[in-house]
Design a protein around this nucleic acid. Structure first.
Length: 214
DNA sequence: GACCAGGTCCTTG
DNA sequence: CAAGGACATGGT
C-alpha cells in the first residue's frame, strides 16, 4: 500500500519532468481575475475557442467583470454567452459567483486577502462550482498553489499507469510539486496540450507517456 | 447525422 | 455510492 503510493509519486514526478522538457513554458489562461473567473464557468464541458468568443462579446458589452454581471439582467448575459452552450445554467452560475464575490466577500480585491482553504470552501458551496472550477479560479485567477484536475489530467495519469481515483489525484500531484504557483500553472497547461495533441483518444490506448524519456 | 467538448447537479436503484 | 440524465451550442 505504502509502496504503491510511493510508486505513483515517482510516476507523477516523472510526468512533470517529461512534460516540462517537452513543452517548456507556454502561455496559458491569460486575463485578469474577473475574466478568469468568468471563463472558468464558461469553459465547463465546452471548447475554449467558444469561451473566447463569449468573453469577447462580454467585453464589447462592457460586462466582463463580476461586479457588472451582478447588476446585469440574466437575459442580457444569456445572449452574450449563448455560444458556449448550457447558457441558462451558466448564467445562473455566473450570477451566484458574482453574488458571492461582490457581496459575501466584499469584492474581487477583498477575496484575494483570504486564505486559500477559505476561498475554496466558499466557492465549492456555490451551486454550479465543483472542484475543477474552484481550483481553476484559485490557480489561474488568484495564483494559489491549487492543482487543477480535469478530464485531461485524469487521462494522462491513466496513460502513465496511475489509477488513483480523481479525488486523490490532486493531493498526489501536489505532493510531488515544488511549492511554486508557476509549476501548478504550467503542469496543468502541459497536460492539456499533451492530451490534445498526442494522447487524443478519450480511451487510453497506450500513448506510453512514460516511454518518452528525454 | 453521430459524437464530443478544459463539469456539475439531481434523481434513481 | 454508482449510474444515468439534463443542461445546449458549435466543431469535426
Amino acid at each position: 500500500m505504502l509502496a504503491s503510493s510511493s510508486g505513483n509519486d515517482k510516476k507523477a514526478a516523472e510526468i512533470v519532468r517529461i512534460l516540462t522538457t517537452r513543452f517548456g513554458d507556454i502561455p496559458w489562461w491569460p486575463g485578469d481575475p474577473d475574466e478568469v473567473m468568468i471563463g472558468a464557468i464558461l469553459t465547463q464541458q465546452t471548447r475554449w475557442e467558444n469561451v473566447e468568443r463569449a468573453l469577447s462579446f462580454l467585453k464589447e458589452e462592457k460586462l466582463c467583470s463580476l461586479a457588472l454581471l451582478h447588476k446585469t439582467d440574466p437575459e442580457t448575459i444569456e445572449v452574450a454567452i449563448r455560444c458556449t452552450g448550457f447558457y441558462r445554467v451558466k448564467t445562473r452560475r455566473l450570477k451566484a459567483l458574482a453574488a458571492f464575490v461582490t457581496e459575501t466577500c466584499g469584492g474581487v480585491e477583498a477575496i484575494q486577502t483570504l486564505p486559500t482553504a477559505t476561498i475554496r470552501k466558499g466557492l465549492l458551496a456555490i451551486n454550479g462550482i465543483g472542484e475543477e472550477t474552484a481550483d481553476s479560479i484559485l490557480c489561474y485567477a488568484f495564483g494559489r498553489e491549487s492543482f487543477v484536475i480535469d478530464a485531461y489530467t485524469e487521462r494522462i495519469a491513466c496513460c502513465a499507469g496511475i489509477t488513483t481515483p480523481r479525488p486523490k489525484l490532486k493531493a498526489l500531484f501536489e505532493r510531488v510539486f515544488t511549492k511554486d504557483p508557476h509549476v501548478y500553472h504550467q503542469t496543468h497547461a502541459h497536460m492539456v496540450e499533451y492530451a490534445k495533441h498526442v494522447c487524443t483518444k478519450k480511451r487510453c490506448e497506450g500513448c506510453r507517456i512514460m516511454a518518452l524519456n528525454r
